[in-house]
């Protein structure tokens, strides 16, 4: 899902929102990390308390628990990367919806809401269960409450949690892919040329699909696409498939780009061809 986002320089960056599944995975990763750290901390302090008697161990545990529960998300998101370790692993980051700097207030707001979204009903439920006083109604109520907040992002356009709503933030994908190789430049061998009719078959959408096929490593796909193009264009030479597609891609790309120069963009094969006949 892409959202328009215009920089002060006037260019639309077309931010891609984090998908609900990715965000759930990021949260689970964070929750697991918090749990693991909590267990490690408890074990370490238990080990220390066996060695030395002192109340500072209990204090450390209380403070550690408090910081892990309330600080993990907020402190990481206030940092330069705007993401918890879980989000970073999933290629997400938190940004302000208005594009301004992500303020501490916004980060605190979005994470304080997590308390009532997740921790409150679950800890309440755990406490009542531990005391044996949780009845069916309470269990259902807690689950419905959590579920309501859990699925809230699915019921709005921008995949906002309640916390995002209050804080004016959203979670976007921030991945850094490498630049793919140039498919046209640097080919030494002689190129095929194609008739206008053969190049009028497709538009930009098909060109970019062809680009994906060429960048992929799937030889079956290359063979299939090459066969289809040959059939449609009525070409009966049978050279190497990948070279054929590369030549066709270069020729089609050059042709569609020359159309762009005069302001005619052929979006897909169903639109009118660039040549007039």
């Amino acid at each position: 899902m892409r959202r328009s986002f215009v920089t002060p320089e006037g260019v639309d960056l077309q931010l891609e929102l984090g998908a609900a599944g990715t965000r759930a995975a990021a949260f689970l990763l964070d929750a697991l990390m918090i749990l693991a750290l909590l267990i490690l901390m408890t074990l370490a302090l238990a080990f220390l308390s066996a060695a030395s008697k002192g109340e500072w161990i209990m204090i450390l545990w209380l403070l550690g628990f408090f910081v892990l529960r309330n600080g993990w998300f907020a402190l990481f998101e206030m940092g330069g990367r705007g993401a918890t370790p879980g989000k970073r692993l999933m290629g997400l980051r938190v940004v302000a919806r208005d594009g301004a700097r992500l303020t501490g207030g916004a980060v605190i707001a979005r994470n304080a809401m997590r308390e009532i979204e997740v921790f409150l009903p679950l800890s309440f439920l755990a406490q009542q269960t531990a005391q044996g006083t949780a009845d069916a109604f309470l269990v259902i109520f807690s689950l419905v409450w959590s579920g309501l907040f859990l699925f809230f992002p699915l019921f709005n356009r921008d995949r906002l949690r309640i916390g995002d709503l209050i804080a004016g933030t959203w979670v976007v994908r921030s991945s850094g892919g490498a630049l793919g190789a140039d498919l046209v430049h640097g080919v030494e061998r002689p190129r095929r040329t194609f008739s206008e009719a053969a190049l009028d078959l497709y538009g930009v959408y098909e060109l970019q699909t062809l680009e994906d096929v060429l960048r992929g490593a799937n030889d079956d796909a290359v063979a299939t696409v090459a066969r289809i193009i040959r059939e449609k264009a009525g070409i009966d030479e049978w050279g190497e498939d990948r070279e054929f597609l590369s030549d066709y891609y270069a020729a089609l790309c050059a042709r569609l780009e020359s159309g762009l120069m005069v302001g005619r963009r052929r979006e897909n094969k169903f639109e009118r061809a660039l040549t007039r006949r």
Partner: peptide, 26 residues
């Protein structure tokens, strides 16, 4: 002007990352 999708995607991602490092950082 260009139909090279890999190029456009790369530039989008790079610009976005740079934007947040320049404008969005505390």
């Amino acid at each position: 002007t260009s139909l090279d999708r890999s190029l456009i995607v790369y530039l989008e991602q790079l610009s976005t990352r740079a934007y947040f490092q320049i404008y969005g950082v505390q």
